[in-house]
Design a protein around this nucleic acid. Structure first.
Length: 473
RNA sequence: GGCGCAUUCGUCUAGUGGUUAGGACGUCGGCCUCUCACGCCGGUAACAGGGGUUCGACUCCCCUAUGCGCUACCA
């Protein structure tokens, strides 16, 4: 009977959720869902100086958009709250005291200046930079009394020698020498805990079974394991995810293009496409499948098949994936997703939606496919002008007008038949035949199929525009 | 500098001692076609380098190189 799976996504609220965070959240979510577990959102706001206004709301909005709803968190509650670390301060201080009492941690009175000098010296000597343990040598009673009066931090007493071989679900065994590990600060001078303490205490108190987080935490895993040991707790399983990288292979960041989830939403990407894409950056199920929905990912995901090396966040494939997901959508769902990317004044018909669903890659591509439907009067672009001044344009258009004259009812099919006849008469087909007609009616030489265009405009308007274009050609 | 992790087509990746090294995106060519797209078909392109181990290495070991991460009273 394995422990119930409880995983957490624990971002610090320093701004918009970016795609790397999205992937971490996704892997946690997938792991929870497929194991009938619980996905917890915890806000790691122990650094007062890095707080960003509204960041938590943006985070929630991004997760919701992506479909990764937390089962427990600051906004939904749960039995293990509060879920903001800033609201759990007493817990950390109490636990730190416990460690000082049992000799696993100690107060340190060293000034930042001394620490800086120490680091410089060690670096010049080619040593690992770590606290030299000056305050660790203080007699406990002296340390205790000074702690009452002087500003200080609490440090973890890390072993001086020996080594630790730890097990990561993705990287398997990794070894570290204790002498390379620093006496990590647990409680800062301002009374707030550092990430290391808060994260271990919370993960234990929240019954977290698996810690799935970014690779940047791998080097601090020995400290975390030591903390579990000092508290006498069983540690959870750990899995350190490879990083997402910029095109130049540096750790993914802003500066090099958009990385915020919100940016992708605004640019016309579907949440299911972005989720699909980040899932595949660093994971595959050994099959040749490329397009997945959340349900399929949940079924296929395994933490053991997560890649070890970092992946460059190259959006080329994302664009294609977005088109794939667009094509798979129900017409009504697609229309709902599309509307925010179009002018609210536009009277979009189902035929226009369908015309666009079969061909675009981004939702935002639809605007330039459809805008001419609503522009009055017609505006001819450069390519359209060229098509209209083609020697045969006049013949094509006046022939078409003649056919219009004899029309009893007008429809897209009528147009198709009429143009086909004209083509046969003049020995034309393809763009030579159709560009002048498109140009005349739409002002463009590219766009949705002519049946959609012509039926949206109606007989009168088509005739007017062709007449106008003939005089132009 | 120290420590750790990593390294298959341009990109995401399959591969766990014997493969014509597979797929996808991109790109190129073609087809389809009322345009542009979409779609379909085909081509292009990779095991970082050097040593071992082995009858045989992309696969195992070592070294080098390169990249990245960490090295804070940030997360």
């Amino acid at each position: 009977m394995p422990l119930p799976v409880r995983v957490r996504f624990a971002p610090s609220p320093t701004g918009n959720l970016h795609v790397g965070g999205l992937r971490t959240a996704l892997y946690n979510w997938l792991f929870a869902r497929q194991n009938g577990g619980t996905f917890i959102l915890r806000i790691e706001d122990t650094d007062q100086s890095r707080k960003v206004e509204g960041a938590e709301e943006q985070l929630l909005a991004a997760l919701k958009w992506a479909g990764l709803d937390p089962d427990e968190g600051p906004h939904v509650g749960g039995d293990f709250g509060p879920y903001r670390q800033s609201e759990r301060l007493d817990t950390y201080v109490g636990h730190a005291r416990q460690l000082v009492d049992n000799g696993s941690a100690y107060p340190c009175f060293c000034t930042p200046e001394r620490l800086e000098q120490l680091r410089d010296r060690q670096q010049k000597m080619g040593l690992a930079t770590r606290y030299d343990g000056l305050c660790r040598k203080l007699p406990t009673d002296e340390a205790a009394s000074r702690a009452l009066a002087e500003p200080h931090v609490i440090r973890l007493a890390v072993p001086r020698d020996g080594l630790i071989i730890l097990v990561d679900q993705i990287r398997k065994k990794v070894r570290f020498e204790w002498k390379e590990v620093d006496d990590q600060v647990l409680i800062k001078g301002d009374g707030f805990p550092t990430y290391h303490l808060a994260n271990v205490v919370d993960d234990h108190l929240m019954d977290i079974s698996h810690v799935i987080r970014g690779e940047e935490w791998l080097p601090s895993m020995p400290k975390h394991l030591l903390l579990y040991q000092a508290f006498g707790w069983d540690p959870p399983e750990f899995a350190h995810l490879p990083l997402l990288l910029n095109k130049d292979k540096s750790k993914l960041s802003k500066r090099q293009g958009h990385v915020a989830v919100k940016d992708f939403r605004d640019a016309g990407y579907l949440p299911q496409a972005l989720v699909n894409f980040v899932a595949l950056l660093g994971w595959n199920d050994q099959s040749n499948q490329e397009v997945y929905d959340l349900q399929e990912l949940t079924a296929a995901f395994t933490i053991g098949r997560v890649q070890k090396g970092g992946a460059i966040f190259d959006t080329g494939k994302l664009r294609w994936l977005n088109g794939q997901h667009i094509r798979r959508m129900e017409a009504s769902a697609f229309k709902a997703a599309l509307l925010p990317h179009l002018d609210s004044q536009w009277n979009i018909t189902d035929a226009m939606v369908a015309a666009v669903q079969s061909k675009i890659s981004l939702l935002s591509d639809a605007r330039e496919q459809l805008d001419f439907f609503f522009e009055e009067p017609v505006v001819y672009d450069e390519a359209a002008r060229q098509a209209l001044t083609h020697p045969l344009s006049r013949d094509i258009l006046s022939s078409l007008l003649a056919k219009f004259g004899s029309a009893e009812t007008f429809s897209g099919d009528f147009l198709l038949a009429a143009v086909k006849e004209i083509g046969a008469d003049l020995g034309l087909k393809g763009r030579d035949l159709w560009h002048p007609i498109r140009a005349a009616i739409a002002g463009r030489v590219v766009g949705p199929d002519m049946v959609t265009i012509v039926e949206a405009f109606g007989f009168e308007k088509c005739r007017e525009r062709i007449t106008a274009a003939v005089s132009l050609s």
